[in-house]
């Protein structure tokens, strides 16, 4: 029915109007209720991170030795840790760390992966072969081991954690993007661009990259959750973010071992925050994949 969709060329015909953002969001949540839940969690996290100072009256780094290990009550909704720091405000501020690391590392990693993947697919042949083998070597290391190695070299701290997580993200993104880009490379419009004598970079950036956006977005959202988890793991192992910066993994490290029985809230709430965040990003990423995939085919 494709050829009947528009009317005669002699009249200004109606073009199918783009649905508004609100309508798209509505359709998305109707089709993927779980994905919408994930999206909601993500939004809550972002709000927490942005408006942290307004959401809590406690300084997340201020010690209050009068209220050490206080259980959840009216003053401290989620209780305090062994230094008397308010857990709620540490979790809220911790969202900043988690999102900073999660977004920056997966954005940078996926974007580099996008460029490398499309370039590799475009040139093909020996370049592609060599490049893919290098990626294979990177992929051979489990994510966490690779991140550990990077931290061992560069040292700890937020900035280094970001680098440590970015590097293993690159080959994963590159591989997925390359698979889609291989199909795009065979499209006649890429041939048309070559026949027009466009430069390689123009074809890669202007003609191929916009057309692999769907898989790119999917891997991006999936990687944010992953990155948050790795950051928490590294911090828990003492190789990531350092005290006194509020970070969820770090809070677990301080609380879990010593106070598991006497003050369980010290470990439970940061643990919940990590779980919810990863859960939210993964649900949202999955739903996004279902949502974008059929559209890629048309």
């Amino acid at each position: 029915m494709a050829s009947t969709e528009t009317a005669s060329a002699t009249v200004i015909e109606d073009i199918p109007r783009r649905p508004t953002i609100l309508a798209t969001l509505g359709a998305f949540s109707r089709e993927n209720p779980l994905g919408a839940c994930g999206g909601f969690i993500v939004i809550v996290m972002i709000v927490m991170a942005f408006f942290a100072p307004w959401l809590t009256s406690y300084d997340p780094t201020a010690n209050d030795f009068g209220a050490m290990l206080a259980p959840p009550d009216g003053d401290h909704f989620l209780g305090t840790d062994q230094f008397g720091r308010d857990l709620l405000s540490r979790i809220i501020y911790g969202a900043r760390t988690a999102l900073l690391v999660g977004f920056v590392s997966s954005f940078v990693g996926c974007f580099l992966g996008l460029i490398l993947g499309v370039t590799s697919a475009y040139f093909g042949g020996r370049f592609d072969l060599l490049f893919q083998r290098v990626m294979d070597v990177f992929m051979a290391f489990p994510l966490i081991i690779l991140a550990l190695a990077v931290v061992a070299i560069f040292g700890t701290g937020v900035q280094n954690v970001i680098i440590a997580i970015t590097i293993p993200v690159i080959p994963r993104a590159a591989r997925i993007v390359r698979a889609s880009a291989l199909a795009i490379r065979e499209m006649p419009y890429v041939d048309a661009a070559r026949a027009n004598g466009f430069s390689h970079s123009r074809i890669i950036f202007r003609h191929m990259m916009p057309n692999v956006m769907a898989p790119f977005l999917i891997i991006l959202t999936a990687q944010v959750g992953q990155a948050i988890l790795i950051e928490a793991s590294l911090s828990y192992l003492g190789l990531g973010v350092q005290e006194p910066i509020p970070a969820w993994g770090l809070m677990l490290r301080g609380g879990a071992q010593e106070y598991a029985e006497s003050a369980p809230w010290v470990a439970i709430f940061p643990g919940l925050a990590i779980t919810l965040a990863v859960f939210g990003f993964n649900l949202f990423g999955d739903a996004l994949r279902d949502w974008l995939d059929p559209k890629m085919k048309t």
Binding site: Y189, P210, N211
Partner: peptide, 12 residues
Amino acid sequence: FQDPFSSLNPRM
């Protein structure tokens, strides 16, 4: 080209 559907970049 033959195929008017795939010979134009859909994002432009």
